[in-house]
Amino acid sequence: MDRHAHDIAVGETYGSRDRGLSAKTRYAVVAHAYREAAMRLGELPSTVQAVTWVVRTEGIAGTATRPKNR
């Protein structure tokens, strides 16, 4: 779990603000969300985290292959 995974999970870019990931409970809640999503998708949590990161960075960079939903 890193700052990018946190920001994706909460749907907000924190920038340089503290995410509270050093708190065991905050970290555990976000990590659980990725594990739950992975279980529902039949994937590894690391795969779900990686895919969300790629989709987000492509969207930010404007290189996404799919148009954004409006």
Results as ranks from 00 to 15, higher is better:
1 M>L: 11
1 M>T: 07
2 D>P: 10
3 R>K: 15
3 R>C: 03
4 H>Y: 05
6 H>G: 00
6 H>W: 05
7 D>W: 01
8 I>S: 05
9 A>P: 02
10 V>R: 09
10 V>C: 09
11 G>H: 08
12 E>T: 05
12 E>K: 15
13 T>V: 11
15 G>N: 08
15 G>V: 01
15 G>P: 00
16 S>Q: 13
17 R>T: 07
17 R>F: 08
18 D>A: 08
19 R>K: 15
20 G>Y: 08
20 G>E: 07
21 L>R: 12
21 L>F: 09
22 S>F: 07
22 S>V: 15
23 A>F: 06
23 A>V: 13
24 K>P: 12
24 K>Y: 08
25 T>N: 15
25 T>C: 08
26 R>K: 11
26 R>E: 12
27 Y>T: 02
27 Y>Q: 11
30 V>R: 06
31 A>E: 11
31 A>C: 04
31 A>D: 08
31 A>I: 02
33 A>C: 13
35 R>K: 14
36 E>K: 10
36 E>G: 01
36 E>S: 15
37 A>Q: 15
40 R>S: 13
41 L>H: 09
42 G>Y: 07
42 G>I: 04
44 L>W: 08
44 L>M: 10
45 P>V: 00
45 P>K: 06
46 S>W: 02
46 S>I: 05
46 S>M: 05
48 V>A: 01
48 V>T: 09
49 Q>Y: 01
51 V>M: 06
51 V>K: 04
53 W>E: 05
53 W>L: 01
54 V>C: 00
55 V>K: 12
55 V>E: 02
55 V>A: 12
56 R>G: 00
56 R>H: 14
56 R>K: 13
57 T>R: 14
57 T>F: 04
58 E>H: 10
59 G>F: 01
60 I>E: 14
62 G>F: 02
64 A>E: 04
65 T>P: 03
66 R>G: 08
68 K>L: 12
69 N>I: 05
